[in-house]
């Protein structure tokens, strides 16, 4: 009797749970995204494209792409190097390094930005020296790139460390005894083994780099057309009561996020076994 009773009860509770989850996802994820797109297109596609074609907005898009390209590139190299060190070598202070890599996750982006202002700003001792050589860090591209790199640093490394650790150094040692040089080992053994995980990390890193607001906001100085990235531009337009313009840029950002998400899903579907740590059959 109890068993028969339990089954419908279980089914009911399962349905309730699923419904609750779906409702939450709909309310907090799908609804806002849909809202962004409907608002952006509320006045028609022509108006949407027109808002994006504003010179300041175009400049913001360009700047975002530049900042993302540099910081993702840098973090790919840093992440690879860090993961390589941590996974393939034994040295003292290794666990401290692992903790440090996670630091950007735990530090508020605003504080991260502030650190760069304090370090390179006009009030710091380093800023005037650099300014004397014609180098502007804060309120210019270099500062924004530095802040973005800081915030997005863990993404690539985090993705690679567990995989490379699990793979060990056996294949690299085998390649070494077979006469391969360091570069040959990297390009022909190490990189192919981690390529999908690396791409996955790069995608995540890129999504975050394009969407970063807090740290970039602090170091940017909000100079329209010069140091405004897309997230900053959204805020500026919104504060200027240009709602349609704000939503147009926001929709573009959301679209980038969606593309990343789809690429990520495709990767997981095609190469899921090479992204995870425990890989069957290997």
């Amino acid at each position: 009797m109890a068993g028969e009773m339990r089954r419908p009860v279980q089914a009911l509770s399962r349905a309730t749970t699923i419904l609750a989850a779906l409702a939450l996802v709909g309310l907090f994820l799908i609804l806002p995204a849909a809202f962004v797109f409907t608002e952006a297109l509320a006045k028609g596609a022509a108006f949407f494209l027109g808002s994006l074609a504003q010179p300041e907005t175009l400049a913001a898009i360009r700047l975002t792409l530049i900042v993302a390209a540099i910081s993702v590139g840098a973090n790919t190299i840093f992440g690879l190097a860090a993961a390589w060190c941590i996974a393939k070598f034994e040295f003292s202070g290794k666990s401290a390094l692992v903790t440090l890599i996670d630091l950007p996750f735990s530090v508020s982006p605003v504080i991260a930005g502030l650190v760069f202002v304090l370090l390179f700003g006009a009030q710091s001792w380093l800023g005037p020296v650099l300014a004397g050589h014609g180098l502007r860090i804060v309120f210019a591209l270099p500062g924004m790139v530095l802040a973005t790199i800081f915030v997005t640093f863990p993404f690539v490394a985090r993705q690679l460390i567990p995989l490379m650790r699990e793979q060990g150094i056996g294949e690299e040692e085998a390649a070494l005894t077979l006469g391969a040089s360091g570069l040959q080992i990297f390009w022909r053994v190490t990189l192919p083994n981690i390529r999908w995980a690396l791409l996955y990390g790069v995608l995540l890193c890129n999504a975050r780099a394009m969407g970063e607001f807090g740290a970039v906001s602090v170091v940017s100085g909000h100079i329209p057309g010069v140091t405004m990235t897309m997230p900053l531009q959204v805020e500026l337009l919104y504060n200027n009561y240009d709602l349609a313009g704000a939503f147009a840029v926001a929709a573009l950002l959301a679209l980038l996020a969606l593309v990343t998400l789809i690429a990520k899903a495709v990767l997981e579907w095609r190469h899921g076994s090479e992204l995870a740590v425990d890989r069957p059959g290997a």
Binding site: G170, E171, E173, A174, A175, L176, T177, L178, G179, A180, S181, V189, P192, N193, A282
Partner: peptide, 19 residues
């Protein structure tokens, strides 16, 4: 260096290049 020694080494785990 190991690459100059021309020694064939077969590892316990074989360490075949999986890709």
């Amino acid at each position: 260096s190991p690459r100059e020694r021309q020694i064939g080494f077969v590892f316990q785990s074989y360490a075949l290049f999986r890709h």
